[in-house]
């Protein structure tokens, strides 16, 4: 009997609303029934499929992001470590180079010193020898000069028509040379 009155009202309201259709209680069971169906369907779709999926995607994204950040952090640390190692290697190499340069310089200095000393010694030896040779030559020259003077004096005496014995001339030359 309730449905009969509903039916009558339904007919009256089919084309034009009288008052508020919201207050037409005849349509309430229908609306409530379909609402419940709708909400149940949405609930199951959400709780079974949509929400776990979206939650998983968000969690996965969060995980990926934090993983990537951690990886980036680690890579950064490794880069810093590598930089430090590089700096250290560079410093070591620089020190090594410094050492080698110093060593080489010392060696060269030693060689140079030795060579200089040797050259000095040689030069001293050579100059001594040369001096000796010069002294010899000088001595030789002096002797030759004496002889030439003696011969020349003898020839000059002879040419001037004087006769003088060799001994006298020689003694005279000798005395002149000395004088």
């Amino acid at each position: 009997m309730a449905s009969q009155t509903h039916a009558a009202e339904g007919t009256a309201h089919a084309t034009e609303a009288v008052g508020m259709p919201q207050l037409d209680f005849a349509t309430f069971p229908n609306q409530i029934f379909w609402l419940v169906v709708t909400l149940v369907v949405i609930y199951f779709v959400l709780s079974r499929i949509a929400l776990p999926r979206i939650g998983a995607v968000l969690a996965e994204r969060q995980g990926t992001i934090s993983n990537n950040i951690a990886a980036a952090e680690e890579l950064k640390l490794r880069a810093q470590e590598a930089e430090r190692a590089y700096e250290k290697a560079l410093a070591d190499a620089r020190a090594e180079a410094q050492r080698i340069v110093g060593e080489a310089r010392a060696e060269i200095q030693a060689d140079l010193d030795a060579a200089t000393a040797k050259a000095d010694a040689e030069i001293a030896a050579r100059s001594a020898e040369a001096e000796k040779a010069i002294a010899e030559i000088r001595a030789g020259a002096m002797e030759s000069v004496t002889e030439v003077a003696r011969d020349t004096a003898r020839e000059i005496v002879a040419a001037m028509g004087f006769s003088a014995d060799a001994a006298t001339v020689d003694a005279a030359v000798q005395s002149k040379l000395k004088g």
């Binding site: 449905s3 509903h6 039916a7 339904g10 007919t11 309201h13 089919a14 034009e16 609303a17 008052g19 508020m20 259709p21 919201q22 037409d24 005849a26 349509t27 069971p29 229908n30 609306q31 409530i32 029934f33 379909w34 609402l35």
Partner: peptide, 26 residues
């Protein structure tokens, strides 16, 4: 008729609205 848009109507004709009738609400 500003309130006509709120009328609950059966989708496939007919006048009666039972609790299970497919309507524009459905």
């Amino acid at each position: 008729h500003p309130m006509d848009q709120f009328i609950v109507k059966p989708l496939f004709g007919g006048d009666t609205i039972h609790w299970y009738t497919p309507t524009n609400v459905t």
